[in-house]
C-alpha cells in the first residue's frame, strides 16, 4: 500500500502541478481567477475524442486538441474576460458561467455518457512493485518536462523576464514599450495549453464526461491557495500536498473521501494561511 501511495502520489503530483500551474500563472500575471480552467481541461479531452474518432493519428489528435483549446481560451479572454478584467469578482462569476456554458455545449454535442480517449502508449510496467500503465508514466514524464520548460521560459528567456515584469508592474512595463495585452494573451494561451496537455495525458485513464473539469479546478484552487496565487514553486509544493493527501485517503481509508480531503485542506488553508504557505509574486525561484 505504501508503494502504491508513493508511486501514484508522484504521478498525481505531476498532473496536478500542470493543471494548477496554468491556473496560477494567469492569475500571477494578469490577476485573472479563471474558473473555466477546468473546463479547458475537459474541452481538450472531448476535442481529442472527436479528432481521434475521425481517424487522425495520435500526434495530430494531441496537437489539434491543444491548438483548439488555446484558441477557445484566447477567444474567451478577448470576448468575456478582458472587458471585465479589472473586477476580480466579475471575472470569477463570468468564468464560472463560461465553464457551465461549455459543459452544456458538450452535453448537447456529445451526450452525458462517458467517452473513451485512446492511450498514446499501450502496456504497462512495474515501479517499486506497483503496476502502472505506460500512459501514466508518459503523463508523469511529459509533465516534468513541461514544468522544466515553464521554469526555463520564465527564468532564462526574455519573454519570461517580460512576463515576470508585467506580473510585477503592468503599468511600468507599458511605460517601457511593452504591450501588456499581448503578454496576457500569450499567458492565457500558455495556461490553456497546460490544461489541455494535462487533459490529454490523463483522459485515457479517467472517465471523460462533461463534468470532469470540476474536480481538477477544485484541486487547482486548493493547490494555489496552499502555494500562494502566482507562486510557481509554491504551486508545486501545494500539488505535492494535495496529491499525497488524496492518495493516502484513497488507499488507507476510502477513495470516495478523496475530494472531501481536498475541500478540508482548502478550508484549513483559507482559515489559517489565506496568502499561501510561501506568499510571493510569479518568479522563477
Amino acid at each position: 500500500m505504501v508503494a502504491d501511495i508513493i508511486v501514484f502520489g508522484a504521478i498525481w503530483t505531476a498532473i496536478y502541478s500542470m493543471i494548477a500551474l496554468g491556473f496560477s500563472l494567469i492569475f500571477g500575471v494578469a490577476k485573472i481567477m479563471n474558473l473555466s480552467h477546468g473546463a479547458f481541461f475537459m474541452f481538450a479531452c472531448y476535442a481529442a475524442y472527436y479528432l481521434s474518432s475521425s481517424g487522425l493519428g495520435l500526434f495530430w489528435v494531441a496537437l489539434g486538441a491543444i491548438v483548439i483549446t488555446i484558441i477557445l481560451a484566447i477567444v474567451s479572454y478577448l470576448g468575456i474576460i478582458k472587458p471585465m478584467r479589472n473586477s476580480l469578482t466579475q471575472v470569477l462569476i463570468l468564468t464560472f458561467a463560461f465553464a457551465m456554458f461549455l459543459e452544456q455545449i458538450i452535453v448537447i454535442t456529445f451526450g452525458p455518457e462517458p467517452r473513451y480517449v485512446p492511450s498514446m502508449l499501450e502496456g504497462g510496467m512495474s515501479i517499486l512493485g506497483v503496476r502502472v500503465t505506460h500512459q501514466q508514466v508518459l503523463a508523469f514524464v511529459i509533465t516534468i518536462v513541461l514544468i522544466l520548460f515553464l521554469w526555463w521560459l520564465l527564468s532564462r528567456t526574455n519573454m519570461g523576464r517580460i512576463i515576470r515584469a508585467v506580473s510585477q508592474d503592468r503599468e511600468m512595463a507599458s511605460m517601457l514599450g511593452i504591450n501588456a495585452e499581448k503578454i496576457f494573451i500569450f499567458v492565457m494561451g500558455l495556461s490553456a495549453a497546460f490544461a489541455a496537455v494535462a487533459g490529454l495525458l490523463v483522459a485515457p485513464f479517467l472517465t471523460v464526461t462533461p463534468a470532469m473539469g470540476w474536480s481538477p479546478i477544485l484541486a487547482a484552487f486548493t493547490i494555489v491557495v496552499l502555494g500562494g496565487l502566482g507562486n510557481v514553486w509554491g504551486t508545486l509544493i501545494g500539488a505535492f500536498i494535495v496529491a499525497y493527501a488524496e492518495m493516502i485517503t484513497s488507499y488507507a481509508f476510502n477513495p470516495q473521501l478523496k475530494e472531501a480531503v481536498t475541500f478540508t485542506i482548502m478550508i484549513l488553508a483559507l482559515m489559517y494561511r489565506p496568502n499561501g504557505l510561501f506568499s510571493k509574486g510569479v518568479s522563477d525561484a
Binding site: 526574455n158 517580460i162 515576470r164 515584469a165 510585477q168 508592474d169 512595463a173
Partner: peptide
C-alpha cells in the same frame, strides 16, 4: 521590477 536583476530590468525594454 524588484525581482529582476539590474541587467534584466534594462534587457526587457
Amino acid at each position: 521590477f524588484q525581482e529582476l536583476t539590474v541587467h534584466e530590468n534594462v534587457e526587457i525594454v
